[in-house]
Design a protein around this nucleic acid. Structure first.
Lengths: 103, 103
DNA sequence: GCAAACCGGTTTACGAAGCAAACCAGTTTG
DNA sequence: CAAACTGGTTTGCTTCGTAAACCGGTTTGC
């Protein structure tokens, strides 16, 4: 019985952080997003979004491409395959946990 | 759309920590549990279990009663009403998130 | 044409948190 | 009566999340 409840035990700490789960959730739905779009959607400050993105990039979960829109800097973010896989299995663990604690 | 993904945004940080989610999950199923039982079920070290229990107690989510079994110290833990409520709504938030990120 | 404000971020500082290991009072064992 | 065990608590370290300060470049106002 407790093995099931422990489904959360080895959860990916990179993802198990609300701000980052949300970022990954958004990226998993859109193919590609720029910094400001992510900022609006997540409600994060620029500083924190930047830090979380760096952490996700470092983990290999998102790729970040820096370019320009005209003369203005533009940062594009995409979920990597590894990121998609990691997020998928994270979701599965949450689902497991929610279901195993029913009633 | 992003409001739904942000369901995790304001999540209860006391609970959104795997060790503590697991403790609450166990307590939500058993009426009352002693320290060593919890240690076996969670797989936590004594030190960490102790710290997490204190934090949960401080938050008003579990009540801790110290007594004796014969001459041996015994620590009994129970979910409070407040704790049950908080855990319930935490589960609902997780469920929301999982469902909103489907496919 | 230049100062001030704005854009799109990054870096820094710091308090809080998790974890492992050391510790401790009391009890049982040999 | 010393050594080991029980049932925990406390300490020390390191990592992490957040807000605030900062920064290079661009646009705006005068």
């Amino acid at each position: 019985m407790s093995d099931e409840l422990r489904s959360l035990a080895g959860v990916d700490r990179i993802i198990h952080e609300p701000s980052r789960s949300i970022i990954l959730a958004i990226l998993s739905a859109v193919e590609s997003a720029d910094f400001l779009y992510l900022q609006r959607e997540t409600g994060l400050t620029k500083g924190n979004l930047s830090v979380h993105l760096s952490k996700l990039e470092e983990a290999g979960y998102v790729s970040i491409e820096k370019t320009y829109r005209g003369k203005v800097p533009l940062t594009l973010c995409q979920l990597t395959d590894q990121g998609r896989q990691a997020f998928d299995s994270y979701r599965k663990q949450l689902k497991q946990f929610v279901e195993n604690t029913k009633e």
